[in-house]
């Protein structure tokens, strides 16, 4: 569980005054969370470890400039997302694939239409408590394009706001919204195949859109 906001602030203040043990406690609280965030984005242990290290270095060097306009955890996750994004961009450049989509292509017109509809066997609460669910979600996430996965991880898994996600990824709020919608729809379809009740399955191919 993430520590309470007030605990963080007290540690931040101590660390800002040069208390190294406060730094240690603060970073220790978030190490696993940053690693998981980076791993979900980059999908390689080594890259995720690098992101943890880069993030900690940045936090140590820039903590003095943390203005408490956001929660410490949000500030930290934005830094981690930035580093993960930088690694991703480097990889993309190596593979000469563009990560950014030109703004005019980003709209609601191509939002995926479901090809598989079924009621889920269990309630979301029941599913959320299961280890299997997390595993399947991670698998489904892996199949998403980077640009959708990043938005989904920051917004729906890490709980950043739309504005914060936009800042972390350096894209517009409108783009965050569109990408999030697409990501959710694509994930829903993938997960419905895993959790859907066969008895209620419908093939919506006779829809006319």
């Amino acid at each position: 569980m993430p520590p309470a906001v007030n605990d963080d602030l007290e540690l931040v203040h101590r660390a800002q005054r040069g208390d190294f043990s406060a730094f240690e406690v603060l970073l220790g609280h978030y190490e696993t969370r940053i690693y998981r965030l980076a791993y979900r984005i980059l999908r390689r242990e080594h890259d995720a470890e690098e992101v943890v290290q880069q993030t900690f270095l940045s936090v140590i060097e820039h903590l003095a400039s943390f203005r408490e306009e956001s929660r410490f955890s949000t500030w930290l996750l934005k830094i981690a997302a930035n580093h993960a994004l930088a690694v991703l961009r480097k990889k993309r450049r190596e593979h000469t694939v563009a990560w950014e989509t030109p703004p005019e292509e980003e709209g609601y017109q191509d939002v995926p239409h479901p090809r598989y509809i079924a009621q889920w066997r269990d309630t979301p609460e029941e599913l959320a408590g299961r280890r299997e669910t997390r595993h399947l979600l991670d698998e489904a996430l892996e199949e998403l394009d980077d640009k959708y996965r990043l938005v989904f991880v920051l917004r729906d898994i890490e709980g950043l706001s739309t504005q914060e996600t936009a800042e972390a990824l350096d894209i517009s709020v409108a783009n965050v919204k569109v990408r999030l919608l697409r990501a959710r729809l694509m994930l829903r379809e993938k997960l419905t195949r895993a959790f859907g009740d066969e008895a209620t399955r419908v093939e919506p191919h006779d829809h006319d859109h």
Binding site: F20, F23, E24, L27, H29, Y30, E49, Q53, F56, I60
Partner: peptide, 12 residues
């Protein structure tokens, strides 16, 4: 040695 321990230590 966790990164959360190492980096503050290096910094100090």
């Amino acid at each position: 040695l966790q990164a959360g321990t190492l980096y503050p230590l290096l910094h100090r």
